[in-house]
Design a protein around this nucleic acid. Sequence first.
DNA 1: GTAGCCCCTGTAGCTACTACAGGATCAAGA
DNA 2: TCTTGATCCTGTAGTAGCTACAGGGGCTAC
Lengths: 132, 132
Amino acid sequence: MPLRRGELARRAGCNIETVRYYERIGLMPNPPRSENGFRSYEERHLTRLTFIRRARELGFTLEEVQDLLRLVDGGHYTCAQVQELALRHTDDIQRKINDLHRMQRALKEMSAQCSGEEVPKCPIIEILSETS
Amino acid sequence: MPLRRGELARRAGCNIETVRYYERIGLMPNPPRSENGFRSYEERHLTRLTFIRRARELGFTLEEVQDLLRLVDGGHYTCAQVQELALRHTDDIQRKINDLHRMQRALKEMSAQCSGEEVPKCPIIEILSETS
DNA sequence: GTAGCCCCTGTAGCTACTACAGGATCAAGA
DNA sequence: TCTTGATCCTGTAGTAGCTACAGGGGCTAC
C-alpha cells in the first residue's frame, strides 16, 4: 500500500505542508520516489507521522518528540539512559493527566450548574490554576 | 500583595516577555500602574496567567484558551452555549487523557523491558499511533 | 485534447513566543 | 553622595512550528 504525500497527510489528519516541513527538518525520513518522481510512503511513515501529530496535540515540543523518536531510531542509548528518559517523560505525562482531569471536572461542574438562562459562575480557572 | 511583572511571571513559571505578549494581544488585562509607572498585579492576574500557561502546556491553542476564558469574563453566553462549549472541550480533553495514558503505559513497558546493556524494542510509537 | 485533480518546488505569511537593545528607577552599600 | 545591581520600561527583531499561495508538470477521464 504505497501512499502519496497527500493521502499520507490526510490519513494522519494533518496537511501536506506539515509533512513537507517535517521532512525538511529531518523528523520524517525522505521517502523513495516512484517512476514519475512522486514520493512513495509506507505504513511505517504513517505510523510515525501519526505519532508525531498526537504528541504535538498533547503539548510536546518537536524537540521532545525528536527525543522520544530517537529511542526508536537510534539504538545508541544505553539501558540506563532509556530508563532515565522514560521516567522523566512519565512524570511530565502524569502531570498533564492530572491537569486534564481537573479541567474535565471543572467543565462538568460548570455545565451541571447550568439551569435556566443564567450564565453560571465558572470554576474552571480556579481549578486549573491550583498550585499542586 | 501587589506584584510586579517579573515576580508575576516567575510565579506562573513563564518569562516576562510572555506576560507582555499576552497583554498586547488582550489575553491578559492591562493592570494598573503604581506611582513610578510600574505595573501592579493582583492575585487574580496570577490565577489567570497560571491557567493560561497550564492550558498551553496541555496543547490548547491561545484561541481555545480565549474561548474558555470568555466563559469567565464575558457573561454574554446563554446556558445552552456554555453547555455546548463545555461538552466540546470535555470530549477533546478525554481524548487527550486517553492518549496520555497510552503513552504512559508504553513508556513504562519500555523501561520494564530494560535489562542489561541492550536497547529494548520500543513500543511507544505503535501504541500512540493506534487508530481509535 | 482539455478539465480536474494531484504532484512538484520555492517563498512568504502566521502564531506563539523569546531575545536583545537602550534607557529609567530604586534599594543597598562604600 | 555616588555607584552598583536588580528590576522596570519601550521598541524591535528573531525563532519554532506550521500554513498558504504561486507557478509549473503529470495522470485520468471524458
